[in-house]
Amino acid sequence: MLIVCGHRILYAVRDDMIVKVKLFATLRKYLPGVELGKSSDIELESGSSIAQLYDVLGIPAEEIKLAYVNGIFCEMDTELKDGDEIGIFPPIGGGSL
């Protein structure tokens, strides 16, 4: 993380952040033992994207359909912030059409 003041870089540190992750349906196996509907705290390098979160969780990209971050659909290159709540889903459907 860079702390800047005007054009001057005051200091640069590498720090981590915690995001809260929920996996659903067929993805639940990637965080085994977690109670359904409960989130898991995942530590990531600051500035990590959703795609990098998938890497950390070890989920192959082709198994994932979409992610909602704090209730909003986000693309894979979206940068995450400390404390974000992320729900990750495989392709699912129902209801009706």
């Binding site: 659903f24 909602y68 209730g71 889903f89 699912i92």
Partner: peptide, 24 residues
Amino acid sequence: PISQPKGGLNSYGTAVLVNILNEA
């Protein structure tokens, strides 16, 4: 993947939508 054998509908039924609507 939604309609195939052991896909979303065959495994979890239409109620698989509960969590995604809740997240959204």
